[in-house]
Amino acid sequence: MAIQLDHVRYAYPEAPEDVVLNISEWSVSDGERVFVHGPSGSGKSTLLNLLSGMLVCREGCVSILGERLDKMSARQRDRFRANQIGYVFQQFNLMPYLNAIENIELAHIFSHRERKRGGVKRAQELLAALNIVPSDWYKPSSRLSIGQQQRVAIARALVNKPALLIADEPTSSLDQENRDNFMSVLMSLATENAITLLFVSHDMSLSRDFGRTDALADVNRSR
């Protein structure tokens, strides 16, 4: 299983009575592509932060690729995330003052695969595959268009060859053309690299590309 949640209950330490996430059982198998939708406030960020190990729950078990995130040390979780999980946000996916290559390299240095070697070369391959022209590789990423930035973000997320890619509303700041472009490269790269894809969005029109669609309200029974 790529993702396996069992009897997970989570409340933020400042408000322990307010259980924001209560999932009795939810899983995603290896290589599956799941589209998750839900209104804001449905516990979406909490779920994604739990899956990436940015939050840790003390009740229930969270296992990713067969490993128990809640049993790992903080250091192990950080390393696991660097190596195994790619993550694309809605915005601010790149350090604005670093260029595309540097942003991808930055993600690469925290992984232990290939020990920092070949980071630039892999970055260039990925950028080329994502249709970013070489003249844009060395511009500060704040000077790239939003569409380009989101595609560089895919490269940044995939540089360490993760097994799981989490995309958190990655298309909501894109126009129609850029969105289609983004979706097609994302899908082809996910297929190419046999990556499990968890895609969260409220744009239901995108769900046709996915084999499975879950409503977060059904998964999370906290309210």
């Binding site: 209950r9 989570y10 330490p13």
Partner: peptide, 9 residues
């Protein structure tokens, strides 16, 4: 940056 450990009653 520290991971927040949840506490559910």
């Amino acid at each position: 940056a520290k991971s927040v450990v949840g506490k559910a009653l």
